[in-house]
Write a protein that binds this DNA or RNA. Sequence first.
DNA 1: GTCTATAAGTTGATAGAC
DNA 2: GTCTATCAACTTATAGAC
Lengths: 192, 192
Amino acid sequence: MYGLAVDKREQLIESTRELLWERGYVGTSPKAIQERSGAGQGSMYHHFQGKSELALAAIDRSAEDLRARAEAEFAGPGTVVERVTAYLCRERDVLKGCPVGKLAQDPDVMADADLRKPVEEYFGWLTGRLAELLDEGRVAGELDASLDPHATATALVAVLQGGYVLARAAGSPDVFAKAVDGALGLLATKEN
Amino acid sequence: MYGLAVDKREQLIESTRELLWERGYVGTSPKAIQERSGAGQGSMYHHFQGKSELALAAIDRSAEDLRARAEAEFAGPGTVVERVTAYLCRERDVLKGCPVGKLAQDPDVMADADLRKPVEEYFGWLTGRLAELLDEGRVAGELDASLDPHATATALVAVLQGGYVLARAAGSPDVFAKAVDGALGLLATKEN
DNA sequence: GTCTATAAGTTGATAGAC
DNA sequence: GTCTATCAACTTATAGAC
């Protein structure tokens, strides 16, 4: 627990996070995790019951990470539109996709209630938090009264997740930026 | 080539389409394809060089299928906004995800130029066609002159792809509908 | 065309030594 | 805690009979 060397348990979780991001759950084997983490079979099965338990630890951490980063933008300075824009435009590893969103497309993650839970909770929190923010802007007169906060928040989160899909399909991050531009262009009309 | 029994080649392609949709490319094995199609090893390797060549035939067909279905909505009756709305709201197997969009999240599909090509072309065509339609509405005075057709089209396609992600994460198609609602609500402001 | 046999390597895990 | 040995099943084919 002390010393410079990070313990194997920690390395296993971090390597699993990387592999889940790169190859998904179905495409990640225990062998690949062991090789990347530098841990052997025994070490992995000592710390975790198996692949799914290790994946759960990795997914939980990735979801918490994204949540903290989003909240940092939401709680920042500026008007509601400025903060939403800052969140939508913040730097992202677009071509790698969303570390959590990609898992929603993985059949074995969605089939396992334990693994799906953190994915569901992350998007539930994100959409709700964004809706709160939009409503705050609406009440303050910054945004049009006709704007539906929750539907709009859902659309904005979808633009991000879909932006990843389109950018990967095109092999270029520009498409992601274009989708965000289009969404911000539409939102601008709702500004007073 | 005649008779009631569909030939094995056809069965192999259709079974592969189903499996790619359900489990992705990484999650689909030749054995699974053979079992579902009722074809043996020899039959599969007679008609196709291997898994990737078979997947290419399946992806090509799925992309062409989606393209034809989209064009049917775009070329239908009504104003531009009515046709775009009809396309966005048409019935979809939301919880299964987009048969083509899901592949953009698959590492082995994106790593293979041949397999990525039909995915890239489908989204390129869809976004371009939608942009044409939006521009048509803009020129006709149906939509605001300030609307950027291509960025807006990209955002709308992203809302659909992201809607699939959010709906799967939530385990409910309602989230997809909510995202579309939000997007249409924003687009409505651009109507004259 | 379709089938079965075979094969080298991987998957996801268990057992037991150290 | 971490390692190596072992395992049954699966992966992605190739070979050759029918």
